[in-house]
Nucleic acid binder design. Sequence first.
DNA 1: CCAATGGCTGACCGGACGGTCAGCCCTTAA
DNA 2: TTAAGGGCTGACCGTCCGGTCAGCCATTGG
Lengths: 213, 213
Amino acid sequence: MSRYTIPAAGKSSQILDAAERMFGAHGFEGVSMSALATEAGVSKANIFHHFRSKEELYMTVLHRARKRFVSQLLSLTDNHDDPQARIHALTHAYLRQMLENEPLVRLLMRELMEKRRPGKVLSERLFADNFSELVGLLREAQERGELRAGFDPGMAMLIIAAISIIYIQGSDFLRHLPSMAWIENPDLFSDALWEILWHGIAPPTPTKTTNGN
Amino acid sequence: MSRYTIPAAGKSSQILDAAERMFGAHGFEGVSMSALATEAGVSKANIFHHFRSKEELYMTVLHRARKRFVSQLLSLTDNHDDPQARIHALTHAYLRQMLENEPLVRLLMRELMEKRRPGKVLSERLFADNFSELVGLLREAQERGELRAGFDPGMAMLIIAAISIIYIQGSDFLRHLPSMAWIENPDLFSDALWEILWHGIAPPTPTKTTNGN
DNA sequence: CCAATGGCTGACCGGACGGTCAGCCCTTAA
DNA sequence: TTAAGGGCTGACCGTCCGGTCAGCCATTGG
């Protein structure tokens, strides 16, 4: 927190904006400082005037994005008294939040999935916080008997997360799969997920087995 | 097929073996030709004697790996008369195959998930072939009434694939998630997946709702 | 009016990269 | 025995990278 301070305006934030865009699109190694300088409309030396190194700039981008991302998710978990409706909404909202932050998600996933990345621990913390809170939601519902007792809530949440991640990261190649044309529409997509998931975690007592929507 | 011919022995295959290992571990950009030469025990110039460019070497690695990988999967789909047992086995086998080819999977996923990668179309074809065949398996079972009618077989297969991919690619950060210690054991892991998935796709008629194993 | 400060820049640096090239050496066939 | 050919190499090239540096210039405080 002492390093990686986040300025609010001026050329510093121009640089950060451009950096977030470009790192998100091409990754840390895929972006050169001179290209970044051009994109930001400043000189390369100026970037080094504001940030000690490429890595410090990168970490500052991650910190800034994490801050924004975390505050966004908290609004998803509230509302909806019916447990089915709440988890249904969660499934949709999770994918939607990822879609709205696609470049950032790609950035974070790159950190999480490769070894020895500079922002790995930071990204892990962001993902873990996010994830654990939602798992807790499922577990509580399960303990209240609103969901079937046998399944693992961590795995259920992981299914939601993994499918959402693959939808973002793999949109290119998913489109090329035959009989998956509905992939273009994220709502249809998460409905298809929800349809299976709900049958997988619904309580045995027949509390309206209407599938999603 | 005319380019990217695959030699069987000698220093060429030494180079290919080392390249597959290193590209798998660090990605295309993360491996320098001199480091690769050292690893393979040959001179850098020798690599360029056998392969016109770094990219041609890379594509040859992908072709060779694809050949090996495809022939491996065909043995998974057979056996098991009981539909539940067959799909249960498929879930486990899919993850296991990925685990046995971890470096290659990481290689392919990097191609699939980033934009404008040299081996993207090749990787897409490999994944799509693989995936479509297994989706067909599920769809046929569904049409035979062995599985519930309402769900999308593409999504069901995507869940299996996505979870397996995340298990491989994200093993580092999954370990750091609280209450997911069982992540260390891939069989426990795919059992947890199977437990939810089977409830999600099982036919309504009670054909033994024993969960996996 | 001047000196100092700090945002900002063009020019430059050492090093690593992918790729080239002349030529060494070992095998082979006449 | 020797000429030819191909596997193989050390030395080298141009380019691009992250990062440095001396200094320009506009603002500001005395």
